Computed example of a mutant assay.
Amino acid sequence: MVEGNHEEFNQEDELYEHYSFKAGKGQEPLRVDKFLMNFIENATRNKIQQAAKNGNIYINGTVVKSSHKVKANDEVKVLFEHPPHEYLLTPENIPLDIVFEDDQLLVVNKSAGMVVHPGHGNYSGTLINALIYHFENLPMNSDERPGLVHRIDKDTSGLLVVAKTEHALSHLSKQFFDKTSEREYLALVWGDVADDEGMIEGHIGRHPKNRLQMTVFPEGDHGKEAVTHYKVVERFGYVTLVSCKLETGRTHQIRVHMKNAGHTLFNDERYGGNKILKGTTFSKYKQFVENCFKVLPRQALHAKTLGFEHPLTGELMSFDSQMPEDMQQCIEKWRNYARHMETKE
């Protein structure tokens, strides 16, 4: 078990991000730069080594080099310089795919690869940078992220609702909190899902050994309650296309629940889906899967539909988005592969 925390503070008029971790009792000796890469999202090895050169990595209160090895029960701290808050909220002229807009809200179809809000390692090119360029006076949420009601992962494509007024932000946020909003995702997962439909329950929280991952705590002793409803859309033998509806909205919920159920998302690098988890050992099959990874260089997850009550009119609004080209191409490859296998049998 590794304990950790993250905070931001000023030191000599420079803004830093401060991370601290305590290595677990079973920690094998490991270079501190490799250790930190397991726990800090978007922190490259170069960034960590630069922090070491600047004297900003500490083990048990002593400045260390990047090659120093972390051992059991060590206290590890690192400071990263990053741009001040004002810089993080710089307007940028980035095109937006707006599905709907009125004076209260807008619905955006986010492309895969776009980060939703600025943070460590992603200081520009985010959805927030685009929103504040195109829209003035967006209301700030509790995390000081203008207009943001909910979020989806960087490499997940699909629909997001953004509030344009304080009333809309409050009303929409309550719907998500009360679980009255509707969200459906399409996911391509490894394996032949046994049941045509079902429900996955299990508290989700930070993984004790890898802070970049979330995990399921089946006993409910850690994390937060999470419920995912799934339905099989199409079967391709070694992979399955499923529809997932969220009852709750936890970080990486679908990715974690499906992995826990034995069906990791296809090409989900963070959770091991970028390896061949099902199938044969034939070299042609391996090459086929590698080609699929190239066509879809991200986790196979798309936020397809979004439903909520309009904050002013009370009208039930529902939006649908087309699966992006990369995911369509990958699924078509698997569809053809499955047909080919059927004809051989």
Rank of each mutant, 00 (worst) to 15 (best):
K278T: 12
Q175Y: 00
Q287C: 00
F9T: 02
K286P: 02
K344D: 06
T126D: 07
G202R: 08
L306M: 06
G147R: 09
S243N: 10
Q299H: 12
A303V: 04
R270C: 00
L159A: 11
R183W: 09
D97M: 08
S243L: 06
T281V: 12
D103K: 15
E342N: 07
M214G: 06
F135H: 06
E7I: 05
K344T: 09
G191Y: 12
D97Q: 12
H167M: 12
S66R: 12
N38L: 15
K275A: 02
H120M: 13
V161R: 08
T251C: 04
L186N: 06
G119E: 06
M258V: 06
H171E: 15
F266P: 03
E166T: 06
E28R: 13
Q11L: 08
E92P: 13
I57C: 11
L36W: 11
T251H: 08
P218N: 02
I94S: 10
L186G: 01
R298V: 03
G220V: 00
T281N: 14
H340M: 11
T165W: 15
E182A: 08
G24N: 15
N56P: 09
H229W: 03
L131I: 07
A112R: 10
L169R: 11
K344Q: 11
S67M: 14
V216K: 03
V189I: 00
E166Y: 12
K224W: 07
V162Q: 09
M323L: 11
E17N: 00
A261G: 03
N46W: 00
D143N: 01
T264R: 01
L89Q: 13
I98R: 14
P118L: 07
G125R: 14
V32G: 04
K47H: 13
V116A: 12
N129I: 10
L131H: 12
Q329N: 15
D268Q: 00
E345C: 05
A52K: 09
E81T: 10
Q104H: 14
A261Y: 01
T165V: 05
Y337F: 15
R151D: 05
K245R: 15
R335I: 01
R206N: 04
G113Q: 08
G61N: 08
R255S: 08
M114V: 11
E3P: 04
T228D: 00
M327Y: 09
M214P: 02
G113D: 04
Q322N: 12
S142G: 13
S321G: 05
L106E: 09
L169W: 15
R298Y: 09
L277W: 12
S173R: 02
E247H: 10
A51M: 05
K71M: 09
D33F: 07
G262N: 10
